[in-house]
């Protein structure tokens, strides 16, 4: 049985269920206790689990992340909620130099089951310091796992799995997705890391997207279906570990790839996935791999410019058509 619930409710269910099951799980963040969190993910948890396990913090991200990493090393299972991924930059030393390295440097004796939940992406004109998609920074660091759910069911299953494994997890939500609804199974389930999900099967082009680009990819796929183009939409769900096999299997079938990321193009995860595909599936490719990504700019405040700075549905559709050689790569000047 499934029911339709919101992404934020699915996240809350995951935290609630795991807090109930494991007394070592606790959560800290700005305004998450009495206020229930800016996106209402933690609403009601304070009453249920008390102020020791659901705790408000000052606006001090470096401190919060440091507390979380330390608590994890000491054996607890902390969730640190950072209001915007942009502010996680204040805690980068704890993430990159401490959390990511501890397991290796202790010969595997020390583990850091730390979860940083935060959100990124554009939406609503919150400008350059509140709109970034920074997954590539964490993707780049060996030792961190990077999770980017696009749908409520994935969000719940992946967060529950995160709370049961032993390594630091960067759990990246999207501000646009909290209010989106989707079917979520009743009862207990987890979704393992490293398992991509085919959000829509197709045979003509493989479209890889994550987080808020998944709904856009699905919309593009639905429109392209009207043109007779069958797009396969693959959501890796976790960027680290990445389900390479699922991607390569799809490419072997379609011979064409479009990768969509909201993050800026330069140094992005899409480029890395493209490099894996060209290396391992070169002789399956019938067209250049297309990347549809954000422009290499800080996100503008103006809503129209914000929209223009990240991939939209028509951009994705054009890229798909290009891989099918149905549309020229560039439009010549009149």
């Amino acid at each position: 049985m499934t029911r339709e619930i919101m992404y934020r409710d699915a996240l809350r269910e995951a935290i609630d269920e795991e807090m109930a099951a494991n007394p070592l799980v606790f959560i800290i963040g700005e305004g998450i206790a009495e206020r229930g969190g800016s996106y209402k993910v933690t609403e009601g948890l304070l009453t249920k689990y008390g102020a020791k396990r659901v705790r408000d913090t000052p606006i001090a991200e470096a401190g919060m992340i440091g507390v979380g990493v330390g608590a994890a090393i000491a054996g607890a299972r902390p969730i640190v909620e950072i209001l915007y991924v942009d502010f996680a930059m204040l805690g980068m030393d704890m993430l990159v130099n401490q959390a990511a390295k501890f397991r290796l440097m202790t010969g595997g004796n020390g583990r850091v089951p730390f979860i940083m939940r935060t959100q990124g992406g554009t939406g609503g004109g919150v400008a350059a310091q509140h709109s970034q998609s920074l997954e590539a920074l964490f993707y780049h660091i060996p030792g961190l796992k990077v999770v980017m759910p696009s749908q409520p069911a994935d969000a719940k299953g992946l967060l529950k799995f995160a709370l049961r494994q032993e390594d630091p997890v960067i759990f990246l939500e999207h501000k646009h997705l909290y209010m989106t609804k989707g079917p979520v199974p009743e009862g207990e389930y987890v979704i393992e890391f490293g398992k991509a999900d085919i959000k829509r099967p197709g045979k003509d082009v493989t479209l890889i997207a994550w987080s808020n680009m998944v709904p856009r990819a699905l919309e593009a796929a639905a429109k392209l279906a009207e043109e007779g183009i069958e797009v396969e939409v693959i959501d890796p769900r976790t960027l680290v570990p990445l389900d390479k096999e699922a991607i390569l299997a799809s490419v072997a079938k379609t011979n064409r790839v479009v990768i969509v990321q909201e993050a800026v193009r330069r140094g992005g995860v899409a480029s890395d996935i493209a490099s894996i595909i060209q290396e391992e599936a070169f002789y399956s490719l019938d067209a250049p791999i297309e990347i549809v990504a954000g422009l290499n700019i800080p996100i503008p405040f103006n809503l129209e410019l914000e929209k223009a700075s990240v991939p939209q549905v028509p951009d994705i559709m054009s890229a798909v058509r290009r891989t099918l050689h149905l549309q020229p790569r560039a439009i010549a000047a009149q």
Binding site: N255, F282, Y283, S284, L285, D286, A287
Partner: peptide
């Protein structure tokens, strides 16, 4: 003659 352009898949 000079080889024209072709996709990796086509060549394979």
């Amino acid at each position: 003659p000079g080889a024209g352009r072709s996709s990796p898949l086509a060549r394979r």
